[in-house]
Amino acid sequence: MTYANNSPIPITVLGLGAMGQALAGAFLDAGHPTTVWNRSTGKGEQLVARGAVRASSAEEAVRAGELVVVCLVDYDASDKVLTPLAGALAGRVLINLGSDIPQRAREAAAWAKEHSLDYLDGAVMVPVGVVGTERALVLYAGERAVFDRCGSALKAIGEPAAFLGEDHGLAAAYDMAMLDFFYGAMGGLVHAFALARAEGIDGAALAPYLNTIAGILPDIVERTGADVHSRVYEGSGANLAMMTASVEHILHTTKGRGLDTGQLVAIKAAAERAIAAGHGPDSWSSIVEVLDER
């Protein structure tokens, strides 16, 4: 997204938390004239020193950019900022990179459509230190034509910019699913270290062995995704009943050491529901069939 003379377009960033500052910094690094605004004062001095323009109001900031990127804590916050600015946003591309649930993203898209605004919803899937690098995964959803208008500018914060589809809730849905995996894994990770410590094992000594588990996860993710898509759960190598017995052993050890058992109890309960539904001979992936409680 450039001017006719191929100069980088002006971009506005609303919200200067750690992620907002990282986004604005990446746009500056790519040569985009960048205007910034934050609800509270005292943030963004380094960006201004690098050439960003600090707007005195959200409306002033919006009118300075062709691409307006919002990065606030959630959609309650962004709604408060954006609702009075529908007129100022006309003719610009609005992208919300804050975090919230898919339904809120769809509601924001409906508001934008009501006001004839070009809108994309997005999710930044990396820490602030990775923004602006080739390892920065940023997801987008919305009208393809709108994405195509600004896709080149968006590569400044993460390349490739990943377009998921025209349902505005898709970026948030991917975000929730990926973070579901991440936080579940992180819960298991710290619990493993707690169990090791209770057994007198130093964390640093365990870490290299845990990394062997982490190393097999990519293949497991691919295989599980294929199983869930096909709904075929071949379990000849390691079936659910056998693996649930292992969970029971971990749970017994955990209880014996007086550690929290919440996550393990939940895992075992889901596995036992799947076994009761006839999935004992199937793979661990078959648990997905009993997780929908509607």
Rank of each mutant, 00 (worst) to 15 (best):
M1A: 13
Y3G: 11
N5T: 07
N6I: 02
N6R: 14
S7R: 14
S7A: 14
V13R: 08
L16G: 05
M19L: 13
G20N: 09
Q21E: 13
A22C: 11
A30M: 08
P33D: 10
T34C: 14
V36L: 05
R39F: 07
T41R: 15
T41E: 13
T41W: 04
T41H: 10
G42D: 09
G44C: 08
L47N: 12
A52Y: 09
V53M: 11
A55K: 11
S57A: 08
S57P: 01
E59F: 00
A61T: 06
V62H: 12
A64M: 04
L67Q: 12
V68Y: 12
V69N: 07
V70H: 05
C71G: 01
Y75R: 10
D76H: 08
A77Q: 12
K80P: 00
A86S: 14
L89D: 10
G91V: 09
G91H: 05
R92S: 04
R92I: 08
N96S: 12
N96V: 08
S99H: 06
I101T: 10
A108S: 13
A108Y: 02
K113Q: 14
K113D: 13
K113A: 14
L117N: 06
D118C: 02
D121R: 02
A123H: 04
A123C: 09
V124E: 03
M125L: 13
P127Y: 11
P127K: 06
G129N: 13
G132P: 00
L137W: 03
V138G: 00
V138C: 02
E143L: 06
E143I: 01
E143N: 12
R144V: 04
D148H: 01
A153K: 02
A156C: 05
E166P: 03
M176R: 10
M176N: 04
L179Q: 12
F182V: 08
G184M: 09
V190I: 15
H191I: 04
F193S: 02
F193T: 03
D202A: 15
D202I: 04
G203T: 07
G203R: 04
L206C: 07
A207T: 15
L210Q: 06
G215I: 06
E222N: 10
T224V: 12
D227V: 01
V232F: 03
E234Y: 06
G237V: 10
A238N: 11
L240A: 04
L240P: 00
M242A: 13
T244S: 14
S246C: 07
E248F: 01
H249D: 08
L251T: 08
T253R: 13
T253L: 09
T253K: 10
T254F: 09
T254E: 11
K255P: 00
K255L: 09
K255Y: 03
G256A: 09
L259N: 12
G262T: 14
Q263K: 03
L264D: 06
I267F: 11
K268C: 03
A269Q: 14
A269L: 08
E272Y: 00
A274P: 00
A276C: 01
H279N: 12
P281Y: 05
P281N: 08
D282L: 02
S283A: 15
W284C: 03
I287F: 05
E289K: 10
E289C: 03
L291E: 08
L291P: 01
D292G: 04
E293V: 10
